[in-house]
Design a protein around this nucleic acid. Structure first.
Lengths: 117, 117
DNA sequence: GATACATATGAACAATTATTCATATGTTAA
DNA sequence: TTAACATATGAATAATTGTTCATATGTATC
């Protein structure tokens, strides 16, 4: 294998290389973006977020609704919390979770559109 | 543990349950959405997509640009291809990849906004 | 045909991750 | 304080996944 396309005999290519290198985000940002999408990339977490689109809800009700164990839901809520996608408030023994911001819905809509095409 | 919040003594809750059950997408769609986000959830694939935002490009140049092996890039391009996120055309020995549609950019923008906040 | 290059792909390995189980922490009411 | 419930969490397990290595396939040129 040779791989000597870039910048060997081709000025146009050089320009593209420079432009691309400018445009690719820093390692740190790339990592954060990937992390965020990883969080979206699990159907349990997606289901949780769909539930929270409708209403804030406590852990055990989410578990009941999705037919999963309290522990599984709690673990996943932690992941969503760390990604700052959900927030929570405590009321006595119960902890209510809700969505943290509005980008979530937009991201979902675009994803759905892509899939439906 | 008891978990008998839902539908025990609470009419309001029943309504929410019904609404949520209506709104959660089918298993199949949930699965597809999760799959799509999984594809986005890797920094190598994200880098590839950022490169392709700028210009169509052949496999070995992407590899060179991102400082990775041809094999690694080729494997990842396959994943992107299966998710219908990139398309390709062959020109002699060389295969040029480019982005398949416009949702990709929107999804990225929203994700970046979320992260930057 | 044979050679060289560009790309694709199967197998193997290491790393990551979702769930379960058991149990800890936090809160309320008796 | 004790009992009961809601939630959180650590450890273990099974499954998934990104990269590497070796090699196969596809294409052009000699």
């Amino acid at each position: 294998m040779k791989n000597e396309h870039i910048c060997e005999n081709c000025e146009v290519h050089k320009e593209i290389v420079n432009r691309v290198t400018d445009v690719i985000p820093d390692e740190e940002i790339l990592y954060d973006v990937a992390e965020l999408f990883k969080v979206f990339g699990d159907s349990t977490r997606i289901r949780i977020m769909f539930v929270l689109f409708e209403s804030e809800m406590c852990v055990c009700d989410i578990a009941e609704l999705l037919n999963m164990t309290q522990s599984a839901i709690s673990h996943q809520l932690r992941v969503l919390k760390q990604a700052r996608l959900v927030k929570y408030r405590r009321d006595g023994k119960t902890v209510y979770y809700s969505l943290a911001d509005s980008h979530v819905k937009t991201i979902f809509c675009q994803a759905m559109e892509h899939i439906m095409e």
